[in-house]
Design a protein around this nucleic acid. Structure first.
Lengths: 359, 359
DNA sequence: GTGAAAGCGCTAACAT
DNA sequence: ATGTTAGCGCTTTCAC
């Protein structure tokens, strides 16, 4: 039924070996005329390599595995899209397996992907098993994107949260604010700690004292942002601006401020983090820092494909920067507004990408 | 390096064939004692079948292809999750390829998936090529989920928009409304036409006259909903309730009503459609009808796997129903509120599933 | 630069 | 019920 190397060999009169060399290794030395003839016939006959056969023989499948906690998590789809785009450009395919935040399921996923011939694995967001024996044994190249807990590890790509948080705070300072509150995420998340550090360091570099009561704990949720903001509003000296470690808490902050009879941004400015989709459609629209998930996916994939080509390697942790997107909650006015913020795809792609080994 | 059938055969003393039969076909008649021994040894040795070899031989890969326009589209991730969950239960894997709404890329995707050994293909949302020669030739089982344009076709799964729209309208009527406006989506979408029909038929079955000026065209976007609502507010006799064909337009409607100095739901009720994530976090929270994408993915996959097992078949179009989720924009009060609406996953799973061959 | 041939790990006839 | 064996389509030595 389907056309194979043998058919092309018969048709052209060359051997299967030659045909294979033309079709599989574009760099193998074959006479130009032969190459052209083979290519031509292969094309007219509609040759499609049987990848099962190829991978059985060569142990390469041009397929990678992607282990995610849940494709429905907010950051996963754009990250996967970044991965896919990079894979596509290199004639690779990706299979996604969900682990549901469950170490057992993650182990299952790894097993599945290893028996299934994949050339490498990308772990997205949470990954419990840095050391899975089977994984180690398989010696497959791997990358970790946006690992949320645990200590930093090699072969990983993370957002530059320190940079992003500093960006947000710097913007508020440039708008004349000096009492800037911060609503943090849960302590055990990297993002929380690093964004807090960015906040703290940026204040410091502007010689603004850090007030402990302006720093509130949060839970990433709307409700946590709301509560934290109520606390801040109850202070003797409330802040004039709030930087929330994510957009959902920023929205909660907006609601709390509004419920206190105040206006955002006139009475209090708010800046979020992540550039989630809803920040563009709520009222007022939320000023935020881009979580460069699309780029992170791309960068991780590039690195993985390099590893696959050159053999598994240890690479430094890569940090990817996101830009500040100025909207309505910070009070910066129309002037600064991003030109193209309606299209999330181009927005992701516009993102400033800076690999920076250390800072 | 990796353990294979031969190793287990040597270890147990049985033949490769016997070992294969135990490990590959759980239903093949093998002595119980032999089976147990093989299973035990396979397990302790950590046997993982080489799927490339298996699929080269048997032409089955336990992998299906999923062609989507863009994994980042709002409905795609939950749909993919439904597909994945069903695949996982049946020891299948899925590879996703993005087509970016481009027929050429879709054709490429099909080619890729065919040379790549996949046992079937699911087309998600838009699919241009009902008739691709290569696809036809390959004779692979296929399913279409939520095809947006073109005439209804076999082997497809769609939302029961007529039912859902009727649900929304019925709810508004039960709340005492009789001047109920409708904001439609673009005319060339199935969803628009069918939701409009549901609206029209439900009014009719309550003996409420259909007023042409209460039906406004829309574009699925915030801005379209906003404009349509301004038109409605300008009417001599404005409606007391608005049913928008999607949540984004419903939000636009809410904003327009608020900008006119009126209150939602006190002065005007609004119901949306789709149950997008943001409907839970905007103010007021939007009452809406669930677009049962998760279930649609599952149902399509079940049907595809049946086809794969039993040979390709033509099946009737399957309609999946979504429930009404009562929140704040309809004015129904606290009583009705969904118990569990904070968790999107369980919300999707709670969805009422009704296959109904015809209606 | 090209061809012959071995064999990747597995399944499925066929044989016993 | 179990074993023997051919061969899936391809890549890759090893010859020439």
């Amino acid at each position: 039924m389907s056309v194979k190397l043998e058919d092309i060999a018969r048709e052209t009169g060359f051997s299967i070996a030659t045909v294979s060399r033309v079709l599989a290794h574009s760099d193998y030395p074959v006479n130009q005329s032969v190459r052209e003839e083979v290519l031509r016939v292969a094309h007219t006959m509609g040759y499609k390599p049987n990848l099962a056969a190829r991978s059985l023989r060569s142990n390469r499948t041009n397929t990678i595995g992607i282990i995610v906690d849940d494709v429905m998590s907010p950051f996963v789809p754009p990250m996967v899209r970044g991965i896919h785009d990079c894979l596509h450009e290199n004639d690779f395919l990706g299979v996604i397996v969900n682990s549901d935040w469950d170490p057992d399921q993650e182990q299952d996923a790894i097993n599945t992907l290893i028996s299934r011939p994949v050339d490498g694995i990308i772990f997205v967001e949470y990954s419990h098993l840095v050391h899975s024996e089977i994984l180690e044994e398989s010696n497959k190249p791997r990358m970790f994107v946006h690992r949320i807990f645990g200590s930093p590890i090699s072969n990983s790509v993370v957002p530059d949260d320190h940079y992003g948080a500093a960006l947000a705070v710097r913007h508020l300072i440039s708008l004349g604010h000096s009492r800037i509150a911060y609503i943090n995420g849960p302590e055990n998340w990297h993002n929380s700690r690093t964004r807090y550090l960015g906040y703290k360091d940026e204040l410091e570099s502007h010689n603004i004292a850090l007030h402990a009561d302006l720093v509130q704990p949060g839970d990433w949720e709307l409700e946590g942002g709301y509560q934290a903001t109520r606390n801040l509003l109850g202070l003797d000296e409330p802040p004039s601006a709030i930087f929330a470690a994510n957009d959902l808490m920023a929205l909660g902050a907006v609601y709390a401020i509004q419920d206190a009879g105040l206006d955002v941004p006139k009475d209090m400015a708010v800046v979020g983090y992540d550039n989630r989709n809803f920040t563009r459609i709520v009222r007022p629209k939320i000023t935020t820092v881009v979580m460069p998930v699309y780029e992170m996916g791309r960068v991780a994939t590039e690195s993985l494909l390099e590893q696959i080509a050159d053999g598994r390697q240890e690479t430094e942790e890569i940090k990817v920067r996101g830009e500040l997107i100025i909207r309505d909650t910070c009070g910066a006015g129309e002037v600064y507004k991003a030109r193209d913020e309606l299209n999330p795809k181009t927005a992701y792609r516009r993102v400033l990408l800076n690999k920076q080994p250390e800072e």
